[in-house]
């Protein structure tokens, strides 16, 4: 299929993009386009106007800023993966991004795009929630910072306003003894997962002091399972108990490749798989 007609506007700067977006309800931001273009090509989305922000300079910066790693919205997944600051300060980010689609998609797909799109099956929104990241958005009233856990409301739904654009994400740097471990189960390499888990752990394998579990591809947004994490801290890995807990804590939504029952099972075994990756 071919996309329906739309007008195309190459934004000259951030303010330009914000202004157009504020004026046109149906205008859509185009960054890397790796999720938007398929929707356009299949006429699942027919916006009146695309605002291309990809040429705006300065939005792809990656830097350390007040104990956080800031990743500019327009940094592509490939940019992030090959960035030395990321490698030195947040090496797990590179391994997570290896699970995102395929190289040619990562060359074009942007960090901010993935965060803003809010696909419940995507890795980065879950990572942002797991790491307590701040999402920086810019709008007519200036910038605001939204904690990732408050950013995602539901299926492809975020707190971002019509006039706002994600400009960057601030990931807190890991403290001494803090680890990010993760895994996902896919039918095929690079596919969206049947279920995935990112765990933010304080402590070592045999001595976990604090634990945050964030699942993806399980429900309608990144699913935080605090009660289940607590249960794990109290009892260790008990499949039945953890499964029960997850079942009450997360509203599992089945898809073509895995039923909700399957997702619940995979989420449970992922706790074991992921935490076994911690060093002793």
């Amino acid at each position: 299929m071919k996309a329906a007609d739309f007008s195309y506007h190459e934004a000259v700067n951030l303010q330009d993009a914000i202004n157009i977006k504020a004026q046109d309800d149906e205008a859509v931001i185009l960054a890397g386009g790796q999720s938007l273009l398929p929707a356009l090509n299949m006429r699942l989305s027919s916006p009146t106007c695309l605002i291309d922000i990809s040429k705006i300079s300065g939005l792809n910066e990656i830097k350390i800023e007040e104990h956080t790693l800031f990743i500019g919205a327009l940094a592509t997944h490939s940019d992030v993966m090959s960035n030395k600051t990321v490698k030195d300060n947040m090496p797990y980010m590179i391994d997570i991004l290896k699970m995102v689609a395929h190289p040619a998609i990562r060359n074009k797909g942007t960090h901010g795009g993935s965060i803003a799109y809010g696909d419940p099956a995507a890795e980065l929104p879950a990572l942002a929630v797991a790491t307590n990241a701040e999402i920086i958005v810019s709008g007519q009233n200036g910038d605001r910072s939204i904690n990732a856990k408050d950013f995602y409301l539901g299926l492809f739904e975020t707190t971002i306003n019509q006039d706002e654009i994600v400009v960057g994400i601030k990931y807190p740097l890991l403290k001494q003894g803090q680890n990010i471990v993760f895994d996902e189960v896919c039918r095929r390499h690079g596919d969206y997962a049947m279920a995935g888990l990112i765990a933010n752990v304080m402590g070592s394998k045999n001595d976990i002091k604090d634990l945050k579990l964030v699942f993806f591809a399980t429900g309608d947004k990144p699913d935080v399972a605090d009660k289940t994490a607590e249960l794990y801290l109290d009892n260790g890995y008990d499949y039945d108990k953890l499964k029960n807990s997850l079942s009450s804590e997360i509203d599992f939504a089945g898809d073509l490749n895995s039923s909700s029952e399957m997702k619940l099972h995979l989420a449970t075994v992922l706790i074991k798989k992921v935490l076994s990756k911690l060093e002793i």
């Binding site: 189960v185 049947m194 895995s258 039923s259 029952e261 399957m262 619940l264 099972h265």
Partner: peptide, 13 residues
């Protein structure tokens, strides 16, 4: 033969 069918056969789900 999908992973889900395997897990069902194994009685896991």
């Amino acid at each position: 033969i999908t992973p889900e069918k395997i897990l069902k056969a194994l009685g896991k789900i």
